[in-house]
Nucleic acid binder design. Structure first.
Lengths: 130, 130
DNA sequence: CCTTGCCTTGACGCTGACGACAAGGTTTAG
DNA sequence: CTAAACCTTGTCGTCAGCGTCAAGGCAAGG
């Protein structure tokens, strides 16, 4: 399988695949004319990468999962290093959820305040019971 | 007040203040020698900007709030445009919270799966009741 | 032979909010 | 006279994950 076909099957671009390779995540063989040649296993690797990136992982976080797949495991998350990353990411997400919840609360407060201010202004201009 | 003093009082850098000015958010006068001169009102403007950026706003989102302050309002969020931005941001945050919650759920599932897999492997190697 | 359609490497662009540095002017204190 | 401590504009670097050319090689069909 050449790079174009893999890109199509994995739902990415050739640029992306070369980028992953430059960062050591994908390792194609080379044919006589220098073309990259991928086997089916690489398709699963690329899909794993994509799935993790979509969830908010960085390329560095993805490495243990790829190594785990390459080690012959059916899924990339059963190895100790992957589990460590999963725990760390879960903690990060929990943290972010907390902060985002606080932000949401603040936004609601500001909105309430702004609306209240508008009501008050309207009341002063057009008193309902003079 | 010169740029250094404002930076110190607002808890930012001079670079940041020039950056805000380049993007039309802050408008100092100039003294005879070309130095930027700020009055007290600009300090409040800069603090408003900082507070909103900390919450995840972009510079463009901040503009209505600054205009609102400049229009003489006690707080930057009581003007219609500011309220629009607040509503939009709140919706964005809600969206993000949803996605992040889904991600968190997926991470927990993956972790559970990985742990279960490890248990199973251990059981096969060291059966508890042969 | 020429076009079409793959593939190669290399290098710049993009987003956002600045940090860091260069090269120089101004003012004050010693 | 000079050093210190301000200020000015201008430009490049940062982080991440690519997009988007550029310039060219290789293979097959008409």
């Amino acid at each position: 399988m050449l790079i174009g076909e893999l890109a199509e099957r994995a739902g990415t671009s050739t640029r992306t695949l070369r980028y992953y390779e430059a960062h050591g995540l994908v390792r194609p063989r080379r044919s006589a004319n220098g073309y990259r040649v991928y086997d089916e296993a690489e398709l699963r690797v690329v899909r794993e990468i994509r799935a993790l990136l979509d969830v908010g992982f960085g390329l560095d976080d993805v490495r243990p999962f790829v190594a785990c797949l390459r080690a012959g495991n059916a899924s990339g998350d059963v190895c100790p290093d992957s589990v460590l990353v999963l725990r760390r990411k879960l903690a990060e997400v929990d943290d972010y959820l907390d902060r985002l919840t606080a932000v949401r609360q603040q936004l609601r407060t500001q909105l309430t305040h702004a609306i209240a201010h508008r009501e008050e202004t309207c009341l002063r201009r057009r008193p309902s019971a003079p």
